[in-house]
Design a protein around this nucleic acid. Structure first.
Length: 747
DNA sequence: GGCCGGGGCATTTTT
DNA sequence: TGCCCCGGCC
């Protein structure tokens, strides 16, 4: 153990060694936070605390996985496996499934993703015949989510005069009714949304002191990563669990709090020492990632914020170059400038494409950059967009699985009761749902005994409902005898989910079939890897419980996808690092965005977002802005962002025409002929065939996990859709989505 | 039940 | 400007 402690700097070591009471570790960007967390867990284990007495919470599966792997390297896999280490949502859902009966749920409840809950809210607004111009689904959804994150149940919401008054003010006075109905419908359907996984955990502990007591005794040490991103529910649950022993260590960086729009409350970290007056504060201030200039520039920026915990982040790496500021006439030219700068830097300094990232404020900015990169053949990958599990065809299969596990799952039922078509139309479904809601009984009960509910449905429709019910029941009978893979494969086949798609010969249709094939691969993978580990959780319910909480970032990207420029929003870049980072679109009303410039608090959050962007860079940060940009269908004149001016001049390399943004007024608006002339030249997005994608070449021999040996006959498509057409020795020709396909190249 | 066209709209999104 | 959703039509 001593040997490990030697690898830490003094403040890291102090943070690891102090475990007698609460501690707050302020970890500046790139300061070795994960290292502290992992060593701390290892240290606790070495000092006699059992793995199952340690609770370690993160926000992402990725962070949890990384930490687990690193701990396993030190203390061994067997021990690491016993840690309560995972995301808030996954750990809490484990607890909720165990204790479900205490909160009126079954242990096999299913989980609504954001889209499911949106659909349900939309349906409720319609049922209540509310004006959907006023009651916009997304606004209602976020209001409900905020309430849940602030520990406000529907009953409390309805009784809260302030909330009601503010709803009335925005002419949504009946919002509380939607919340009540949504809550009840979820309960009848035996489903929880993401917020419920947190809120019900809180309610479970709050209403059942003896259960809380049990978990207090179980979790003898609590660690929380990214504490600046916790919301009130998370904060309260931690507080409850740590109330006796106070052995809680939270790690985070208030300067990187960028998720308040999702309910994250920066006060949780700012006020930690008020909750635990005896807590110790540790500051990790040495940045091991970036040059001194980048660190200093970032410091000078964040110093403009009022609310923060004081710290002096420093770097002992090279001084490095100043942050270059690039100005462009238009958003179009900005793309061109970024692309050519990447080409230039690669020539000068032997960088790989993967050494570059382009970060932007909004996803809408990506397209024009994408076109510029494509024009000069720079390979790139874009993060964001639909994840695998959100694809329609994949969600359809999963909806069947959900219904088999939980036949009361309303959204799953609506999705597939008539897909593939079985003659059970919308009207019938509406009748079933309103009967269930009227009699406060589950959907499955209504479907099983339609005659008891006076549905006014034709006899042949009743017959069809009966057939559907029998179909689902047939699978339910196999639940305890067949594993996830067996049920999944049978389901895909017998429900006729691929037959329909096979007829579709378009590339999209093909990719749908492949996605379903990859889903069955992942079922196989799930079952076989768990069997290998000796984990008995190989049933369909176990699979669903796991994937409900996965995101796209958790799915392993193919190895061949590596040498590419990364493009993503700044939000999704948090926690990552790149040798060179372009932060684009630094203009007023884009970054900072126009909706937040009236609120100082939100403006500070935008500044933190810019701080996050700059501190992703190891060697160079390049800041760009355009003087005009297409926005909502029209071009408009832009002023350079105030954030550029927030960085001390001594760390910047300003463009020749810098005077134009140092003064706030604009003398000469650019007429932008450049933009309008060149804009039409965009390349058509045809399916191109490649000789090579990443490390893969046409002609390579591969060994696929399921299909065995084969050789690559064609490489197609870009990025997410990159595919290899492979001639397998025993399976014939197959197309594989490189993103998911599991194979190795044989030398 | 699926396709087409008009209208409304347009941050960020760890689970 | 482009996308998504809804409603109307076949």
């Amino acid at each position: 153990m001593d040997e490990f402690l030697q690898q830490l700097n003094e403040s890291q070591r102090n943070a690891v060694l102090y475990n007698e009471g609460p501690s707050l570790v302020i970890a500046g960007a790139g300061s070795g936070k994960t290292r502290v967390l992992t060593y701390k867990v290892a240290y606790l284990l070495a000092n006699g605390i059992s793995a199952y007495n340690i609770l370690a919470l993160t926000f992402t599966n990725k962070a949890a996985r990384e930490m687990k792997n690193r701990v396993a390297q030190i203390v061994g896999e067997e021990t690491a496996k016993r840690l309560w280490m995972g995301t808030f949502h996954s750990i809490f859902s484990r607890i909720l499934r165990r204790e479900a009966e205490h909160i009126g749920f079954r242990h096999d409840f299913t989980v609504y993703d954001a889209q499911d809950s949106k659909n349900l809210i939309k349906a409720i607004i319609k049922e209540k015949v509310l004006d959907d111009k006023l009651y916009k689904t997304s606004a209602v959804q976020s209001r409900i989510s905020m309430a849940k994150n602030a520990l406000i149940t529907p009953a409390q919401y309805s009784a809260d005069r302030e909330l009601i008054a503010s709803d009335q003010h925005s002419r949504r006075g009946r919002l509380y009714e939607i919340y009540i109905e949504y809550w009840n419908r979820c309960k009848t359907a035996q489903v929880m949304d993401f917020d419920d996984l947190l809120l019900y955990t809180y309610l479970l502990f709050d209403k059942n002191p003896e259960i809380l007591e049990r978990y207090r005794n179980l979790f003898r040490f609590i660690l929380v990563d990214e504490y600046q991103d916790t919301n009130s529910v998370q904060h309260e649950i931690i507080r409850m669990l740590a109330a006796d022993h106070h052995r809680v260590c939270v790690v985070g960086d208030d300067a990187q709090s960028i998720y308040s729009f999702r309910g994250a409350n920066i006060d949780n970290i700012l006020n930690f020492r008020k909750v635990y007056p005896e807590s110790k504060l540790f500051k990790l201030e040495q940045n091991y990632r970036s040059t001194q200039t980048i660190v200093n520039a970032a410091n000078s920026l964040i110093y403009k914020n009022k609310e923060q915990i004081s710290k002096k982040v420093f770097s002992e790496k090279n001084v490095g170059d100043r942050l270059q500021v690039l100005s462009s006439f238009s958003d179009f030219e900005e793309g061109y400038n970024v692309a050519s700068r990447i080409a230039e830097m690669r020539m000068l300094a032997q960088y790989a494409y993967s050494d570059f990232a382009i970060l932007y404020r909004t996803n809408a900015q990506s397209r024009i950059l994408e076109e510029a990169l494509r024009r000069i053949n720079i390979p790139y990958k874009i993060y964001g967009g639909l994840s695998f599990y959100q694809r329609k065809e994949v969600k359809d299969v999963i909806a069947y699985m959900r219904l088999i596990i939980n036949p009361n799952d309303e959204e799953a039922l609506k999705r597939i009761i008539n897909y593939p078509t079985r003659g059970i139309g919308d009207t019938t479904v509406k009748k079933i749902i309103s009967a269930s809601s009227l009699h406060h009984t589950g959907l499955w009960e209504v479907i099983s005994n339609p005659l008891n509910y006076n549905l006014k449905i034709q006899n042949n429709t009743i017959q069809k409902i009966g057939d559907f019910r029998a179909f689902i029941e047939r699978f339910r009978e196999k639940l305890t005898t067949q594993n996830a893979y067996e049920i999944g494969v049978a389901l895909i086949k017998e429900a006729g989910l691929v037959n329909e798609l096979y007829e579709d010969r378009t590339p999209e249709g093909l990719s749908r079939v492949q996605n379903i094939e990859e889903l069955s691969n992942s079922l196989y993978e799930f079952v076989s890897s768990r069997l290998e580990e000796g984990n008995p959780g190989i049933m369909i319910g176990d699979f669903l419980a796991e994937i409900a909480l996965l995101t796209d970032q958790d799915i392993e990207k193919g190895k061949e996808d590596t040498n590419r420029v990364t493009m993503m929003t700044i939000h999704s870049a948090k926690g990552l690092e790149f040798r060179n980072v372009f932060v684009v679109g630094l203009e007023e009303d884009l970054f900072p965005s126009e909706q937040c410039k009236h609120s100082p608090r939100e403006l500070e959050e935008e500044r933190r977002l810019f701080y996050v962007a700059i501190t992703r860079a190891e060697e160079n940060a390049i800041l760009t802005y355009a003087k005009s940009r297409f926005h909502n269908g029209q071009s408009r004149i832009c002023t350079p962002s105030r954030f550029i001016r927030d960085i001390d001049r001594e760390y910047l390399k300003l463009p020749a025409d810098a005077s134009s943004f140092v003064s706030t007024s604009y003398s000469k608006p650019d007429p932008m002929p450049f933009y309008t002339n060149t804009r039409k030249l965009t390349l058509p997005e045809n399916e191109t065939s490649h000789q090579q994608i990443g490390e893969l070449h046409v002609g390579d021999r591969i060994q696929h996990e399921r299909f065995g040996c084969g050789s690559i006959v064609e490489l197609l498509g870009e990025n997410e859709n990159a595919r290899a057409s492979v001639e397998f020795e025993s399976f014939g020709k197959k197309q594989l989505l490189l993103k998911f396909a599991r194979f190795e190249v044989i030398k």
